[in-house]
Write a protein that binds this DNA or RNA. Structure first.
Lengths: 173, 173
DNA sequence: CTGAACTTTCGGTAAATACTGAAATATATG
DNA sequence: CATATATTTCAGTATTTACCGAAAGTTCAG
């Protein structure tokens, strides 16, 4: 009979591996997603060496991805007194995780897109030809929409969990 | 002095190229994003050959990406009477574009994630150890949240443009 | 200041992904 | 059914992205 600890290790390893696959299906580095999954399901903070060991990856790789996750705000660095090593612990609150991801994706995806659209918008303003005007119109609708989406995602991600749930109820009701 | 047609060609080429860069920054094939940009700003439907020509890409590449965009529901195939070639035209309505993208990303990103979480949830239910129970709890919060997000994105993407705007006003108000 | 503990960087390499070009297949026309 | 026209597939190749491991850099205690 399999011990509970063994079973847990198996299930957790499966989770880590699959979360990595998911990650790569939505444009996130596989290893980064695995590190995140590992720490989200770790009872304790882990050091770079422990992460290397657990995932069988190199120091450089572990380092890069841990730091990237810190940049995303999904991991925190913690220091244990009397030790010089850095340990990493995951943000566990799902709403907080969601907010960080929305914020980061907005910064990386939405904001630069908006910039591009605004350039095209002004570069094509005042064009007289049919082609020029229809291009301008299309840029205008896109720019309006993306600007709007940007504002909305700020709003939602800025809400505390409770407020967001209230709002959600309105949508369902 | 530069003619308006020349200027338009420049601006549009810039848009197509940059839209491609954007795409690759959010996990979408660069070429696919370029093809999409090209057709969104084309006054007329285009054939595979015209797309190849315009973007200087091979037939196979053009074909694959055009068909993929049709799968996403972002392009339609149109047939001109008296001709055997297929032409492609883009969906131009921004709300419609948004809905298609949300739907597709949900199908690819959210649904499989939910499946994984549900497996981990049931595999860890009833565990007695501290580690087992905290793993189960974490899976539970994630599963609840993702299931909820899934439902919300269905709701929003299922709304007609007008309804969605009304709702948006509530959030701002 | 010196050495040990730990972190960061980076050139070379491996793996994954996208693209080409041509052949194979399908479809319409006479 | 023969031919021309158009679409689809795919093996080989090119490009991009991720990873390793060792060396360089940093920090801190003694």
């Amino acid at each position: 009979m399999k011990s509970e600890a063994t079973k847990l290790r198996e299930v957790r390893d499966g989770f880590v591996a699959q979360w990595g696959v998911m990650g790569s299906h939505w444009g996130i580095n596989r290893t980064m997603a695995q590190v995140h999954a590992l720490l989200m399901t770790s009872p304790d903070a882990m050091s770079t060496d422990e992460v290397m060991e657990e995932l069988s990856i190199s120091r450089g790789n572990a380092h890069t991805n841990l730091k990237e996750l810190v940049n995303w705000g999904l991991l925190r660095i913690v220091i244990r007194k009397g030790e010089r090593k850095e340990y990493f612990e995951a943000e566990l609150d799902v709403w907080e995780i969601f907010r960080r991801i929305v914020e980061e994706r907005k910064r990386r995806e939405i904001d630069p897109t908006l910039g591009l659209l605004q350039e095209c918008l002004s570069a094509s303003s005042g064009m007289k030809s049919a082609g020029g005007r229809s291009f301008h119109e299309q840029m205008k609708s896109l720019e309006e929409f993306v600007r709007f989406a940007s504002k909305m995602s700020d709003r939602v991600a800025g809400m505390p969990h409770g407020k967001a749930m209230q709002l959600a109820m309105k949508i369902f009701g």
